[in-house]
């Protein structure tokens, strides 16, 4: 029994259902996966509690919801860490395995991470520099430690409201600025209430399936192999398909009349300095293992040194 907030009827859900069917067939019905879509089992915290008592056996999570279980998994989601998807690829190729092993130690089997693209800044007045953010009401999701710290470092004041208030909030001016990956923006229809999108890879988002170790260990070894094979394939697919979907979502936003703006010269650097200090602070406080952050930064430096000749080729999409 696996819960997710992906809506019933979405492409994602269909894929998961066919994967479940394949697993059931290949294990001769010994492994039957029941999916609960649309968030009907509750938010991530509730799903985790239900996994603990055995009502559910797994869930699809975003890194922030596993903060208390294995917070290192948030490392890719640190703000302004990456500049392009190529950088993400380079780092993920080398670090994913460590995160997977960490999750397993924390009690969850996972079959790979499905990237959700970069969150972008969406606003009603163009945002090209930090100064454009001053005095604006920036919405941040509830309970998101990284966002809070970042906002504090940039000396901005966040508006915390339920997600359901954001759409009307954008219309009435209660909220001026939101940050979210393009696909989510389309689903929540926020694009109908904003004018501008800043072309800035704010932070990398992803989602992943995590199955309770206790349940997984109860399966026969052959069955475990089948589940791992099918689910890893599906998550590889998601990772790839999501990238295309994100491209399409960005196009859709542009077609819907959202104006894309670039940060002004040097704005990125001015942002990065305090934000990287926040990232370092998170490591000092044990939120992210310091050696993990160092490893990722070293990989990035390595990549940037190697790719400096072709730096212009990097795409932020």
């Amino acid at each position: 029994k696996i819960a997710t907030i992906a809506p019933e009827g979405s492409g994602w859900m269909k894929e998961m259902r066919s994967a479940a069917a394949e697993i059931s067939e290949r294990t001769d019905g010994r492994v039957n996966i029941k999916l609960y879509g649309g968030g009907v089992m509750g938010d991530d915290k509730k799903v985790l509690r239900k996994i603990r008592i055995g009502q559910l056996h797994g869930g699809v999570f975003t890194p922030t919801s596993l903060e208390q279980i294995y917070s290192d998994v948030n490392v890719y989601g640190l703000p302004l860490l990456f500049e392009s998807v190529d950088e993400v690829d380079y780092v993920r190729e080398r670090v994913d395995a460590r995160l997977k092993a960490g999750l397993e130690e924390a009690g969850f089997v996972s079959f790979g991470f499905a990237g959700g693209g970069f969150a972008r800044v969406l606003s009603n007045t163009p945002v090209r520099s930090v100064d454009d953010l001053r005095g604006k009401k920036v919405w941040v999701p509830e309970g998101d430690t990284i966002s809070y710290r970042t906002m504090a470092a940039l000396e901005l004041s966040p508006v915390t409201l339920p997600v359901t208030d954001v759409l009307t909030g954008l219309q009435t001016g209660l909220v001026d600025i939101v940050a979210s990956p393009p696909v989510a923006v389309l689903v929540l229809q926020w694009h109908t209430k904003v004018e501008y999108l800043t072309e800035l890879p704010l932070l990398y988002t992803m989602a992943f399936l995590a199955i309770d170790n206790r349940t997984f260990a109860r399966l026969q070894e052959a069955d475990r192999a089948i589940v791992t094979e099918v689910m890893s394939r599906v998550y590889d697919d998601f990772d790839r398909v999501n990238r295309v979907d994100n491209e399409k979502a960005l196009e859709a936003l542009e077609n819907a009349g959202v104006t894309f703006v670039e940060p002004v010269e040097g704005a990125l650097e001015r942002w990065r300095e305090p934000v990287m200090a926040v990232n370092r602070g998170l490591a000092d406080d044990g939120y992210i293992s310091p050696d993990l952050l160092d490893e990722v930064l070293a990989l990035l430096a390595e990549y940037r040194a190697g790719a400096s000749g072709t730096a212009e080729a990097g795409s932020t999409r």
Binding site: G135, E142, S157, T160, L161
Partner: peptide
């Protein structure tokens, strides 16, 4: 706090 002082308690909602 939000409208007058441009601030707020982050944890108020929760």
């Amino acid at each position: 706090l939000r409208n007058v002082f441009d601030s707020g308690f982050i944890w108020a909602d929760e």
